[in-house]
Design a protein around this nucleic acid. Structure first.
Length: 198
DNA sequence: CGGCTGATGATCT
DNA sequence: GATCATCAGCCGG
């Protein structure tokens, strides 16, 4: 399977557009043991001035990667257990980004299964915490430029995204009604409740 | 399948 | 010391 690297110019400057654009694109994790990759089927946008965004209170050591130019990784720990993978959006100095919530496993399925301690394909990377565990997303990857081939980068394959559905975001309480979650309709690899995935 | 709950640690106040 | 952009496991239907 041929995966072509995305360039920064490929990425929409608007973060909501970026969240939609990333559906159907590929996250590639290159490890010494081999390549792990997955096709993005679910994202959420976190915008400038959005009370649900980590950047809302201004730049801190933790969230500084969100303020990098679009295409950089922002990785943080949620609930003390799970790492979350985000793609920073917008221009340098603007704290916006896209949370990658689920991928459809492509390469390195055996590696993902070993990492997750389970084999069911549809549960390997369904949900941001599971995705991060399956793809070995560590805090050390925070700030990585995803438009450069390295340990973690973004690509595309010759397969169009399906129809994109929209819903409210999952697991937040502030600005909870904004329709900023996007997913590929009909995909079995999408997280969230059924009601949200119509 | 849907609902509930405890785990767990980095971060900021 | 409070707050989490979550998940696995357990329970009842």
């Amino acid at each position: 399977m041929r995966i072509t690297k995305l360039t920064r110019a490929d990425l929409p400057a608007d973060t909501t557009e970026l969240a939609r654009f990333l559906i159907g694109r590929i996250v590639v994790r290159d490890l010494p043991e081999g390549r792990i990759s997955g096709r993005i089927v679910e994202t959420e946008a976190y915008l400038h001035g959005d009370a649900a965004a980590h950047s809302f209170g201004g730049e801190t050591p933790r969230n500084r990667s969100l303020f990098l130019e679009r295409g950089h990784a922002y990785v943080y720990v949620a609930y003390g257990i799970h790492r979350m993978l985000n793609v920073a959006g917008g221009a340098h100095g603007i704290g916006t980004g896209v949370l990658i919530r689920a991928v459809e496993p492509l390469d390195g399925i055996a590696l993902m299964q070993a990492r997750r301690g389970m084999s069911k394909l549809t549960d390997l990377a369904r949900g941001p915490g599971r995705l991060a565990m399956a793809m070995e997303i560590t805090l050390g990857l925070d700030g990585t430029d995803l438009t450069v081939k390295g340990p973690l980068w973004l690509g595309r394959i010759d397969r169009p995204a399906g129809e994109i559905g929209t819903s409210i975001r999952i697991g937040i309480t502030k600005e909870a009604e904004r329709p900023l979650r996007f997913y590929e309709r009909g995909s079995r690899f999408v997280s969230g409740r059924k009601l949200l995935n119509v």
